[in-house]
Simulated scan of single mutants.
Amino acid sequence: MRIDGRLAKMVIRPRPRVSHKGSFGKVLLIGGSYPYNGAIILSALASVHAGAGLVTVATEKDNISALHSQLPEAMAFDVYDFSLLKQQIELADVLLIGPGLGESVLAGKILDLVLTGVQVHQSLIIDGSALNLLAQENSVHWQTQRLVLTPHQKEWERLSGLPISEQNEDNTQEALRCFPDQTVLVAKSHASKIYQGHQIGYLDVGGPYQATGGMGDTLAGMIAAFVAQFPTDFFASVAAATYLHSAIADELAQEAYVVLPSAISKAIPKWMKKLSEAPEMDEVFL
């Protein structure tokens, strides 16, 4: 199936008048270890701008001031306070782990806390270095069906065992059988695809102007916000966020040689407004 503005418009609906911040999901973002501190800040910027109702960030204590200087709307706490981390895992609707997490022993322990603490009703997004840590796990007892994996080709090679040259559609679908049935795979490349079971979504947006650090962190944050707000169709919510991420970049690239991830985040609310209100798709930039 083609993933485009029509799908995004189906997902992004006007907000009901009778609602509050809890109506739009509680998102917990986990990552940002030295020297990758900025990654989780970019994810948080994307989640807040994409409309998540409550965003909490678990990161290194020294990173919290930098986060709040750019995003006072987010809450934050020390990721190494494991007692508090366990509490926050229980409270979240959506968990995102990985942006800037690193691959230390402590990072592995944090991933284990998430994998054992996630509940059946929660959505779990695994990104960045958490994908590499996951590849090192002997086995995982998945406690939620609502799993999103967001690897680039090398990360998918480590996780699936498929060399990049063998990452075709049939092999990728077969490798996904090792994960919960509802798992959504965002296979990032110059021609990204989105998989869920036998369903494959194709994108024709995006370009080389997105090849810069932090782009994947921003996408992961957007996916977290969309899954939190629009939980009914899991695949469609992930696909709409992925489409919007690159569609915004396409527009910004008309006047920019390189598109910064933070610039994408700033543009998200305007795009969501247009998509939620336009009666016909020719009124929406595509």
Rank of each mutant, 00 (worst) to 15 (best):
K109Q: 15
S33C: 08
G201K: 06
G22S: 04
S165Q: 12
A175K: 08
T172A: 07
P99T: 01
Y34C: 00
L275I: 10
A135H: 08
L124C: 12
E73V: 07
S47F: 01
S265V: 11
Q87L: 09
I194R: 01
D81G: 03
T218Q: 00
T218A: 01
Y209K: 06
R146K: 15
V55M: 06
W142K: 07
A239C: 10
R177H: 08
A220T: 02
A239H: 04
F77N: 14
S43Q: 06
V94N: 07
I248T: 07
E169F: 09
K154A: 00
Y80E: 15
S104K: 05
A267Q: 15
S246N: 12
F226M: 13
T232L: 11
S47R: 00
Y209F: 12
V114H: 03
Y209D: 03
W156N: 00
A135S: 14
V238I: 11
N132F: 00
V259R: 00
K9V: 03
A39G: 01
K109M: 09
F24K: 04
R6C: 04
R17Q: 04
I223F: 07
S189Y: 03
G38K: 05
I12P: 05
T116Q: 12
A107Y: 01
M75P: 02
N138H: 14
K61D: 06
A191G: 05
V27G: 04
S123K: 15
Y202I: 02
A92S: 12
